[in-house]
Design a protein around this nucleic acid. Structure first.
Length: 281
DNA sequence: TACATTTGACCCAT
DNA sequence: ATGGGTCAAATGTA
């Protein structure tokens, strides 16, 4: 089907069923990957969390000896493996946006050479569903201030918002077939777009009200639904008109996984070869 | 009462 | 030694 675009147009139902099958396969693959990743983390906070009673036991054993002089015990409070690489996405924005996921603040730190504190959020479904997604929000020193939002890890929770749809297009110039995980519009673009978008969109807390009251810079507190947890792909999933109007040159996304460029006409993918082991050609 | 936020302590990576 | 990420008790809020 992908090789014969003329057949696609005349047989859209078949295309849709293939798309559904592909999505199902992606779902299975992602769930397998996420579960195996959890097993591989040697000192995952989740795995290492001890019950309060056992922690108390630990403390009682420590009595009479300085905690600092003790050898680190892996199951102690605060013990974890700092994540190094993984999927990381950084976004600069002039306004705080609601990405549609439920976040829970778990920390706040003063950062060296930074005027503002950095806030730490984890997915609200971390313990419920083992979702490892976290994000950091920090006001930059720029004038006017912008927000640097760094996302770590992908959402593996079911707090998903929209059903992804794959749009298959044919690149007329080079005969390559493009698969776009679009939301609902055809992409008249020669660039490849893909999106592991979420299933349903129920706006959650996004940011605590305190942040809105005290830290929001813009007078127009507009919250743009955006799903950075799916990497740059979510940005690509929006209609191109939306991307250019909302992100334009003001907001910028960078990622350790994706290499991206920003233009007034939307986003381009410079290198998609790092998207896991998937290659779209 | 349940859930979210605050904040000092703890520990890892550099 | 230090900065930064996370934990969890204390506190706040609905």
């Amino acid at each position: 089907m992908l090789d014969r675009p003329e057949k696609i147009e005349s047989d859209l139902k078949s295309v849709n069923s293939v798309v559904v099958q592909i999505l199902g396969m992606f779902d299975n693959t992602l769930s397998i990957l996420s579960s195996s990743n959890l097993n591989e983390i040697p000192h995952s906070p989740i795995n290492d969390v001890k019950s309060p009673s056992s922690w108390d036991d630990q403390k009682s054993e420590d009595s009479g000896e300085s905690i600092k002089t003790k050898k680190p015990v892996k199951t102690k409070r605060g013990c974890y493996k700092r994540r190094k690489n993984g999927s990381m996405l950084t976004k600069f924005t002039s306004t705080l946006i609601d990405d549609g996921y439920a976040w829970r603040k778990y920390g706040q730190k003063v950062i060296l050479n930074s005027k503002h504190q950095r806030n730490y959020y984890r997915c609200s479904h971390k313990f419920e569903q083992g979702c490892q997604a976290t994000k950091q929000v920090q006001k930059t020193n720029d004038e006017p201030s912008k927000y640097k939002i760094t996302y770590n890890g992908l959402h593996t929770c079911n707090n998903v918002q929209r059903a992804p749809q794959i749009i298959v297009t044919q690149n007329p110039s080079d005969n390559s077939t493009l698969i776009s995980f679009e939301t609902n519009t055809l992409m008249e673009n020669n660039k490849v777009g893909f999106c592991f978008s979420s299933m349903k969109h129920t706006p959650k807390e996004g940011f605590p009200l305190g942040h809105i009251k005290h830290e929001q810079v813009s007078s127009s507190d507009h919250y743009t639904p955006w799903d950075p947890a799916a990497g740059l792909s979510q940005v690509l999933s929006e209609p191109m008109s939306m991307i250019s109007s909302e992100l334009d040159c003001e907001d910028m996304v960078s990622s350790g996984v994706f290499s991206t460029t920003c233009s007034t006409h939307g986003y381009e993918i410079d290198d998609i070869n790092d998207f896991g082991d998937f290659l779209f050609e």
